[in-house]
């Protein structure tokens, strides 16, 4: 009997519901916090990013048009699927140097559940019927902004990412995520969870690679409507915001709070990437 060869996972990108390698053929080495080599992750190019935006745009009508309660159920399903892969996530967080991996995974799962609950309540809480002087019924509703780019924070590779991603997609946005450069493996695993959670392909696209290489293209892309800059390195921030202004993207960053803290989750994280539509409806005399 020969010794069995271990079957190891290839860390790939997640674009439009598929798991391609980078079109550039490039990869980069991911190491654990103690320097151990862990894997070769795909190093996405600007063309992968372009494809990801195309996939996100294509997914937008269906996802934003889905009933809010359905989006809530699907987000809850993500939490369920993560629970089933708990061991894998904990091992990856341990490799990334997390102090308490189990707590990080639990908090991430809970965050999905928390935002899932907002899906069918957001309009009631942040929407309004407005008193106006005239024979009109006047109401205001939140609508998703469109395609949102998310630069995930470099540390807190799982909870940090989930805390940015869940509020963006719960309202119906579709996203292009640039994963943590140093610890991309939890994001790759999360992509595999999303692929098996009824989240339609293209709603979340995950790119791994060099943040400084991808961010300028994401920020300048004219078909991206919002940008979460939480993970943008300080030296790139000014240029990123300047590029994002070209097509007046909504730019947002995470609140300055410990991600485990209650202050790190808020309905205002959802409204950061929503637009408010006000409708004047004539009333009979």
């Amino acid at each position: 009997m020969t010794e069995r060869l271990e079957v190891r996972r290839t860390a790939k990108l997640y674009i439009g519901g598929a798991f391609p390698r980078s079109e550039s053929g490039r990869s980069y080495e991911v190491t654990a916090h103690d320097g151990r080599p862990l894997a070769q992750a795909s190093r996405a190019s600007r063309k992968d990013l372009r494809e990801a935006v195309v996939a996100a745009r294509a997914a937008f009508p269906t996802w934003s048009g889905a009933a809010p309660s359905l989006r809530g159920q699907i987000l809850y399903r993500v939490a369920e699927m993560m629970e089933g892969r708990r061991g894998q996530f904990e091992a990856e967080l341990a490799d990334a140097g997390a102090a308490d991996p189990a707590r990080g995974v639990s908090a991430s799962i809970d965050r999905w559940v928390w935002y899932a609950g907002w899906a069918d309540k957001l309009a009631q809480v942040v929407g309004a019927t407005n008193p106006v002087a005239g024979p009109f019924f006047n109401f205001t509703l939140p609508e998703p902004t469109g395609v949102v780019g998310i630069v995930a924070p470099g540390d807190q590779a799982l909870l940090g990412l989930v805390s940015r991603l869940a509020p963006a997609i719960v309202s119906g946005n579709t996203t292009v995520v640039v994963a943590s450069e140093r610890s991309p493996l939890p994001a790759v695993s999360l992509a595999e969870v999303l692929a098996t959670s009824d989240v339609p392909g293209g709603v979340v696209n995950v790119l791994t690679g060099h943040t400084s290489e991808l961010v300028p293209w994401l920020a300048g892309h004219m078909d991206v409507n919002g940008l979460d800059v939480t993970g943008v390195p300080a030296e790139l921030l000014a240029d990123t915001e300047r590029s994002a202004a070209d097509n007046i993207k909504r730019v947002h960053r995470a609140p300055d709070a410990d991600p485990f803290d209650q202050a790190a989750r808020s309905p205002y994280e959802i409204t950061a990437f929503t637009e408010f539509k006000t409708v004047w409806h004539p009333m009979g005399a």
């Binding site: 372009r50 935006v53 745009r57 293209w217 300048g220 892309h221 004219m222 078909d223 991206v224 590029s243 070209d246 097509n247």
Partner: peptide, 9 residues
């Protein structure tokens, strides 16, 4: 322009 464009334009 050096930036990717979109169908909106």
């Amino acid at each position: 322009t050096g930036s990717y464009s979109g169908p909106d334009y």
